[in-house]
């Protein structure tokens, strides 16, 4: 047995009960091999010995953390500051216009949105007054939603607040919370002020002054109402927002059509979608799905029909 006394595979096999009786007898007859086997068995016993238990609190914490991971459709909201940073980089490269121009575009767009309502009104005031109302509404939208009013000093603080708000939403129902809040910002400020305008004015507006595609794209880029959400969040987006006017409610938003999603796109933290509500392309406010593609391009789709708007 001398030549085998340090054959750990044989000793290990003995420990596992897989060696022949002859091998066992040979090892036991050899003091050196027997000692080696004993040391090895001691190691086995020590490895098999109990470990200190986790504290009840830590144990419960681990299980709770795992249970939290199982919560369906946990919202995954991209950091707004990160999104802004990306946009800033993009802006630097493209030489995009400053925030005040975006605000102006927002004012113009909301002015256009208010136009059908204004046309349907019977009361008359001044065009200037209506325009002021719409512009004020736009200011509210830009301030509430994008935080980009062109004043850099304010922007950081607002970004921080928005980011905090977004993180809070991530802990709860982000899609609904952020969607509704943002929608409310747009719809209420638009509708309320527009309705006020309806009550007091009807103006001969130049409907041809629709923002250009580039202007609208900038607006959407900079005032994205909902940053990037998971597809589950987007699918859960069913606000059925209405705008009061003319005695009946006008449905402005609808559920996102699942068929609109490009299944090749990554789902999760990298979900490349955003939602906006403004859509002058379709002749009236609708829900627009914004798709950010890997190649840097952006598509705008009617979130209900999936028609590509841009």
């Amino acid at each position: 047995m001398t030549e085998n006394r340090y054959d750990d595979e044989l000793l290990s096999a003995i420990i596992d009960g897989e060696a022949t009786p002859e091998s066992v007898a040979a090892v036991e007859a050899d003091p050196v091999a027997r000692q080696r086997l004993s040391d090895m068995a001691t190691g086995v016993d020590i490895v098999a010995s109990p470990v200190p238990e986790a504290t009840p609190e830590r144990r419960a914490q681990s299980i709770a953390a795992a249970m939290a991971a199982a919560t369906p459709a946990a919202p995954e909201v991209t950091s707004l500051s990160a999104e802004r940073h990306k946009r800033d980089e993009k802006q630097k490269k493209s030489g995009r216009p400053p925030g005040w121009l975006i605000a102006a575009a927002a004012a113009l767009l909301l002015f256009i949105l208010a136009t059908p309502v204004l046309f349907n009104s019977g009361s008359v005031d001044t065009a200037t007054e209506a325009a002021d109302i719409a512009a004020n509404a736009a200011d509210e939208v830009v301030e509430e939603v994008s935080g980009d009013d062109g004043e850099e000093a304010m922007e950081d603080e607002e970004e921080a607040m928005e980011e905090e708000a977004m993180e809070d939403e991530a802990a709860g129902d982000a899609a609904e919370a952020s969607g509704n809040a943002a929608d409310t910002a747009v719809i209420e400020s638009t509708a309320d002020d527009a309705d006020s305008a309806v009550a007091q004015s009807s103006v001969d507006l130049d409907i041809e002054t629709v923002p250009s595609i580039e202007e609208l794209e900038l607006l959407i880029d900079d005032a994205a109402i909902i940053p990037e959400l998971s597809t589950n969040d987007l699918l859960a987006f069913d606000t059925s927002l209405t705008r009061a006017g003319g005695g009946t409610d006008e449905v402005l938003a609808t559920t996102v059509n699942e068929a609109c999603f490009n299944t090749d796109q990554t789902i999760g933290n990298e979900t490349p979608y955003s939602l906006v509500i403004l859509d002058p392309f379709a002749g009236g406010p609708t829900l627009v799905l914004v798709e950010f593609n890997d190649d840097g391009t952006t598509r705008f789709l009617n979130a209900e029909t999936c028609a590509v708007l841009r």
């Binding site: 750990d8 027997r34 000692q35 080696r36 004993s38 086995v44 020590i46």
Partner: peptide
């Protein structure tokens, strides 16, 4: 197991080790 046995063999008390 052999590595563990090496370490145990170096520092353990031979007289009190278990027979296996």
């Amino acid at each position: 197991r052999g590595k563990l046995a090496d370490i145990i063999g170096d520092v353990g008390d031979d007289e009190n080790r278990n027979d296996v």
